[in-house]
Simulated assay, not measured.
Amino acid sequence: MAIISLTTDWQHRDYYLGALKGRLLSICPGAQLVDLSHNVGNYNISQTSFIIKNAFVHFPKGSIHIIGVKSEETPEHPHVVVKYQDHYFIGADNGIFSLIMKGDPEEIVRIENIEKEDHFHTFPELNVFAKAASHIIKYNNLTELGSTQKELYRLVPIRALIQKGTITGQIIYIDSYGNVTTNISKELFESVRQEREFEILVQSNHYRISKINQNYHETSEGDFLALFNSSGLLEIAINKGNLAELLQLDINSDIRIKLHDY
């Protein structure tokens, strides 16, 4: 059974998702459709890449992942299928694949040989991506979809800044609980910290956290906490509260870690 995941920035009031699922079920009979997320911020490929990167690894190999965020084709950003770790990703080559993938993909093919319907030219998910998914399922190869492309368009992810005695990271994701994930990995934190005492500063010096939890319940309800989440990244939260809403935090807001010398 073929598995096709869907990630879009569509609102549920729109017909787009229903139309895409209907097309996929029509031309990919027996396929299992899985919704990754449809609450992504409009055109937000950073948020989209974070969701897909942390979800696709739990899918069976051979799964197909349709990316319906910032999906319009341009001369600089063509529609492509990318094979990576035995998964297939379909979308516009606008930098999102470089944010999802750590290493080089096995194959990159431009989608050039799909018969397009003129009245769906503004709906590439329906007009192109669904048909590309059908081709992959039927023929298990990419060569007939179009020409091979050597490299992907690359975006450079924002890195945490390391200065003497300080790590400055940015919020890269906010979940539905208002917990914020930063770009500070556990490996980076431990290598720079070197067992020193520390304070995590949220919103300048107003809120300080001086320990790392293993679980949320280690901190009393309503109090601030920090832990390394399932993505291996530093997460700041309020136990049974909404941190982002309370402090009006947003993507790219700074989180600082002050390290204390012995």
Results as ranks from 00 to 15, higher is better:
Val192Tyr: 00
Glu73Tyr: 13
Ile27His: 04
Gln194Gly: 04
Ile90Phe: 14
Ser147Cys: 04
Leu201Met: 09
Ile66Thr: 11
Thr219Asn: 04
Ile108Thr: 14
Leu33Lys: 02
Ser204Gln: 11
Ser98Gln: 01
Gln32Glu: 07
Glu151Trp: 07
Lys211Ser: 15
Phe50Cys: 14
Pro124Ile: 12
Asp9Arg: 03
Ser191Cys: 01
Leu36Val: 14
Asn54Asp: 06
Phe129Met: 15
Thr8Met: 05
Leu246Gly: 02
Glu115Pro: 00
Leu142Tyr: 10
Asn242Cys: 05
Leu243Lys: 05
Tyr84His: 13
Leu225Pro: 01
Phe89Cys: 08
Glu235Asp: 08
Lys70Leu: 11
Gln85Trp: 04
Asp14Tyr: 11
Thr168Lys: 05
Arg154Asp: 07
Val80Leu: 10
Ser231Thr: 13
Gly146Leu: 02
Ser253Gln: 01
Thr148Asn: 03
Lys240Leu: 07
Ala92Arg: 06
Leu259Asn: 03
Leu126His: 10
Ile167Lys: 01
Ile64Gln: 03
Trp10Ser: 09
Ile27Trp: 03
Tyr15Pro: 00
Leu243Ile: 11
Val40Ser: 10
Asn213Ala: 11
Val192Arg: 00
Lys102Gly: 14
Val80Asn: 02
Val69Tyr: 03
Thr166Ala: 04
Ile212Gln: 00
Phe123Val: 09
Leu126Tyr: 15
Ile212Cys: 01
Glu221Ile: 09
Leu142Arg: 09
Ser46Ala: 06
Ile212Thr: 02
Asn44Val: 13
Ser176Pro: 00
Ile200Asn: 01
Arg208Ala: 11
Asp104Cys: 07
Gln170Asp: 04
Asp175Ser: 08
Pro29Lys: 11
Arg193Ile: 06
Gln163Met: 14
Arg110Glu: 15
Asn140Phe: 12
Arg159Leu: 09
Asp254Leu: 13
Lys258Gln: 15
Ala31Phe: 03
Thr148Gln: 04
Ser5His: 07
Leu234Thr: 08
Asp118Asn: 12
Lys186Arg: 08
Asn39Leu: 13
Tyr43Gly: 05
Lys186Gly: 00
Glu187Arg: 13
Glu112Arg: 13
Ile172His: 02
Phe129Ser: 13
Asp250Leu: 04
Glu199Pro: 00
Lys150Val: 14
Glu112Phe: 08
Leu247His: 07
Glu73Trp: 11
Leu201Trp: 15
Thr7Leu: 05
Tyr43His: 13
Pro78His: 15
Val128Asn: 02
Asp175Leu: 12
Arg196Pro: 00
Ile90Leu: 14
Ser230Asp: 12
His12Pro: 04
Arg159Val: 05
Glu106Met: 10
Thr148Phe: 06
Arg196Tyr: 05
Glu197Tyr: 11
Gly30Arg: 10
Gly169His: 06
Leu188Gly: 07
Thr48Gly: 06
Ser5Ala: 15
His77Ser: 14
Ile200Ala: 07
Asn141Tyr: 08
Ala133Gly: 09
Lys83Leu: 10
Asp250Val: 15
Ile236Pro: 00
Lys211Met: 11
Gly222His: 02
Ile4Arg: 02
